[in-house]
Amino acid sequence: METKYISQSGIEQWFNAIITSGKRVYAPVNSRGQIDFKLVKNLNEVSSEYIQTTQSIKASVYPKAEVLFSYEKVNGKVNLTDFDPESVPETVMWKVHPCDAAGFKPLSAIFNWDGADKLHNAHLAKTSLVSFSCASADESCFCTSVNGSPGNTAGSDIQLTMLPDGGAIAEILTSRGGELAALLPSVFEADKGVKKEKYLVDLPARFSLEEVNTKLSKAFNSTVWKEQSERCIGCGACAFVCPTCACFDIQEDVHGSKGRRIRCWDACGFAMFTLHTSGHNPREHQSQRWRQRILHKFSYMPERLGVVGCTGCGRCSRACPVDMNILEHITSIAQQ
């Protein structure tokens, strides 16, 4: 861990050095009225005025649809072709928020629980995170309530805190971050001794995780699930924009004698998610599915995996067509 100063022009030069190194760089881009991570070549493509991208950076280490392996049927035999980790390109996620970087830990906890996930780990090994601490927040942000903060460095390889002069405090946090900085070491100047806290948004915590956890441990049969979920229409928007939701489906892409087995995003909010072949559905009603979403993130994951399944990014609340505001719902559970 090393703290440096990087000037405005230094940032641009360094960015260009990363591009020149051949790594793919994804950054928030404003397009079609949405701000989302896109492949970029120039720093001027990167969006500046926004609170949060619509989608998280989850897809960089857990693609929406990914080939687990492929196969070909030849004369009654089957030839398998395994996923090749070398096929994953070196990628830098530029200008992620701390709540996004923090999402990799719970995501990996799921994928690597009692058995490594080769695909996820291959992406992780090739992905570097350059986070920017947060100088602003909106009413859906609540990282400080879930062990995070606007300047949280967990998960980041390098974190920049923007300064009024257009330069930034650069915290080089990991060896991978060091390698990134080493692409153009000259722009990383000596630390000017400025404290980054001054440039972070003040975001008071809204609830205590311990309190929520205690309440949830007795809440399975509570009427709160039905009350809160009435307006939920059962789509997967919340799960798909979430940095930590990892539920997936496995599907078959068939073309004659060739085929690919595909892992794709799924959501516990979908009615069909738990449907048995017999027609029996353990989570028949939306209220049960809403309960699952909340309990999984705030109770089961902490207990089984030792991580909270929420980083307080607020994307689910912003993406929800019917304003299922997770902060509001969790706060009300904490206060019950």
């Binding site: 229409i233 059962g234 997967g236 928007a237 995003w265 067509p321």
Partner: peptide, 14 residues
């Protein structure tokens, strides 16, 4: 436009 769709089926649900 379709390349942005991630099949959350919010269109169907709404």
């Amino acid at each position: 436009e379709m390349s942005h769709c991630f099949k959350c089926y919010a269109c169907r649900s709404a």
